[in-house]
Nucleic acid binder design. Structure first.
Length: 114
DNA sequence: AAACTGACTAATA
DNA sequence: CTATTAGCCAGTT
């Protein structure tokens, strides 16, 4: 069991292409921490503002933007995604079947349904 | 060293 | 649909 380092998670998030999104669980899987979606959220919460990591491309498993406890960066997240061409439905959700990041070499898919 | 903190997900009722 | 339960771990105070 490898130690889940925030740096490793950030490096994975950096690989998400513009115009795509990944779920927390997907980032965890690709980073080699399958089943540790929550730690991904924790890692992003600790991200420095000037890191250059495209944190806004990470959404929850429903294709929705997760709310922060304090702060208002979730509003910025939607704006940034829309600027990259990601469309939101009337319910505020992203169509994951359309925008979800397709990993070249997945350790294992988060959801086997595709 | 112990307590506290925090962007999740799946299963169940 | 909402609510609850359970698993999850590093960094900071």
């Amino acid at each position: 069991m490898a130690i889940i380092s925030r740096a490793r998670i950030w490096a994975t998030v950096r690989r998400i292409p513009s115009g795509n999104v990944a779920t927390y669980g997907q980032v965890a899987t690709v980073a080699g921490f399958d089943g540790h979606a929550r730690q991904v959220g924790y890692a992003l919460a600790a991200l420095p503002a000037d890191s250059g990591v495209p944190w806004h491309r990470v959404v929850n498993s429903f294709g929705e933007i997760s709310q922060r406890r304090g702060g208002d960066s979730h509003e910025l997240q939607r704006i940034l995604l829309e600027q990259e061409g990601v469309e939101f439905g009337a319910n505020g959700k992203i169509d994951l079947s359309r925008y979800r990041w397709k990993v070249r070499h997945p350790a294992r898919r988060e959801r086997p349904s595709d």
